[in-house]
Amino acid sequence: MSSQLLGETAAYCGLCGEPEGPTSDTHPTPDTHPTPDTHPTPDTHPTSATQQTDAGNATHEPHRACRERLKMEPPRYCRQCRRRMKVQVTPLGWTAECSRHGALTS
């Protein structure tokens, strides 16, 4: 269940907050892949672990490692505006709320 419409364009990665690229369904070129040098922001800097893992498939799916990690943690960034969301984890679920774009639930 989600108040964020699935059809809307996801501009940012929910895990690291970096841009997704032109669309999430096509393969971005290497130039569109965010790197620490081109997209530093103080509060959305991805971990180096993410960077290292992403490096191997940078030309295909820049956030494949992030998507893997999202199986084991809730999203922290709004995919539409990259705001940090308020996240509540419970034993059997989670909710993540963007002040502008509403709540996602597990």
Binding site: M72, V89, P91, L92
Partner: peptide, 13 residues
């Protein structure tokens, strides 16, 4: 600990 943790997720219960 069954299910999720405090800020990360666990295996399904």
């Amino acid at each position: 600990i069954v299910g999720n943790y405090l800020t990360t997720l666990g295996r399904p219960a």
